[in-house]
Design a protein around this nucleic acid. Structure first.
Length: 198
DNA sequence: TCACTGATCGTCT
DNA sequence: GACGATCAGTGAG
């Protein structure tokens, strides 16, 4: 299977459909020292009118990028330590997207390990904060078009798409009942408690 | 494996 | 001034 960039027209609307669609797709990050590549194995959708979504209370300086057309990057900093990478999932001006929570590393693991302190490959990008750290994602990537050539883009799957599970989202306190988390069942690179990885 | 805690700081109340 | 789409470390079972 040959790797090519996803086109914007490939991305389904709205964000819930996009979150499921992105499972099994690839994420490609190019830095000066080389290329990092991984399979997306865990995502969460954050919808317009969803109290857990950063767009819920309207546009601010911080969440501005979340209102871009689908396929753009929304990056934010949280807990004083971590960056989170999201893919916008709505039409321009609406506000909603998909949090990329975990990656199965396929290429450039040596580059990821440099930033992650030599942890086992299984832990390189298992969790949204770890994923961002491994791929050198920070505010510089805010607003990037992930369907265009550049330092970060979404690619086609490199293998068969596995069994996709669905659950509640992790780490939120509002609208906790919504089942908007998607993941590859039984995959060792998925984050969260065991019950949410089956 | 699970539960709990401290770290850490930008954003909004 | 409180809190957050987290993580690493620790300790108990």
């Amino acid at each position: 299977m040959r790797l090519r960039r996803l086109r914007r027209a490939d991305l389904p609307v709205p964000s819930a459909a996009l979150a499921r669609f992105l499972i099994g797709k690839t994420l490609v990050r190019t830095v000066s020292s080389g290329r990092m590549l991984g399979r997306i194995v865990e995502t969460e959708a954050y919808l317009p009118h969803d109290a857990a979504c950063h767009a819920f209370r309207g546009m601010t300086q911080r969440n501005r990028a979340l209102f871009m057309e689908r396929g753009h990057a929304y990056v934010y900093f949280i807990y004083g330590n971590h960056f989170m990478l999201n893919v916008c999932g709505e039409e321009a001006g609406i506000g909603g997207g998909v949090l990329l929570r975990a990656l199965e590393p396929l290429q450039g693991m040596d580059l990821m390990q440099k930033r992650r302190g030599g942890v086992p490959v299984q832990d390189l990008a298992r969790g949204p904060g770890r994923l961002a750290q491994a791929l050198e994602v920070d505010m510089r990537l805010e607003g990037m078009d992930l369907c265009a050539a550049g330092p970060l883009w979404l690619g086609t799957p490199l293998g068969p798409v596995a069994d996709i599970g669905r659950s509640v989202r992790i780490g939120i306190s509002k609208d906790v009942h919504r089942r908007l988390r998607f993941y590859v069942r039984g995959n060792a690179y998925v984050s969260g408690p065991a019950a949410l990885r089956k």
